[in-house]
């Protein structure tokens, strides 16, 4: 029985740092290679979004943008801000910070959408040289980032925000 989650701050900080570290390779390395009739090249996440826009699939591109770029960034930033809040005992807008925390905790899991899509494509589209989808190293890194941010959000005790209020 603990009044607060044990070592919440440290754990959240560690997990967040790991997520940051892994977010860089997730964006540098190619996440997926789609080969059609022997023609195809690996795409990074951003490269994939651009390719989707160029292929006139703008709604899907927007979806990928939101789920793969905006949401993880939001989470990373949000949790780091919350940690800063707790560490430096910011006084104002406590309720808003709590709402932010709740949003982060809720929305976090939806980033897995991207990974879900990649894994389904890889297992379904396996037709040799006619069409093939191969996942790249960034897919693993991205999945790790999402899991780590979810763990970070879970390990953060929002009551710490209130603790610092006088």
């Amino acid at each position: 029985m603990h009044p607060r989650l044990p070592n919440s701050f440290q754990r959240t900080a560690a997990l967040l740092l790991s997520a940051f570290c892994l977010y860089i390779p997730a964006n540098i390395f190619p996440i997926m290679t789609v080969t059609r009739l022997g023609v195809g090249e690996p795409h990074t996440i951003i490269g994939g979004i651009i390719a989707l826009i160029n292929g006139n699939m703008v709604p899907i591109a927007m979806l990928v943008l939101v789920a793969s770029i905006l949401v993880p960034l939001l989470k990373l930033l949000g949790i780091s801000l919350l940690l800063l809040n707790v560490h430096y005992r910011w006084q104002s807008h406590t309720k808003k910070w709590t709402i932010l925390y709740r949003i982060i905790a809720f929305v976090g899991r939806w980033s897995m959408l991207d990974i879900f899509m990649i894994s389904i494509l890889v297992s379904l589209v396996d037709m040799g040289s006619v069409a093939q989808v191969i996942a790249g190293p960034a897919a693993t890194a991205f999945a790790a980032v999402v899991v780590l941010t979810m763990l970070a959000a879970k390990n953060f005790d929002p009551r710490l925000i209130w603790d610092n209020q006088r």
């Binding site: 754990r11 560690a14 997990l15 790991s18 570290c21 892994l22 860089i24 390779p25 780590l148």
Partner: peptide
């Protein structure tokens, strides 16, 4: 130092 800190270390090393 909680063992948790190994995680970012590993992440850093891997990336």
């Amino acid at each position: 130092l909680p063992l948790v800190w190994f995680l970012p270390l590993i992440a850093l090393l891997v990336s």
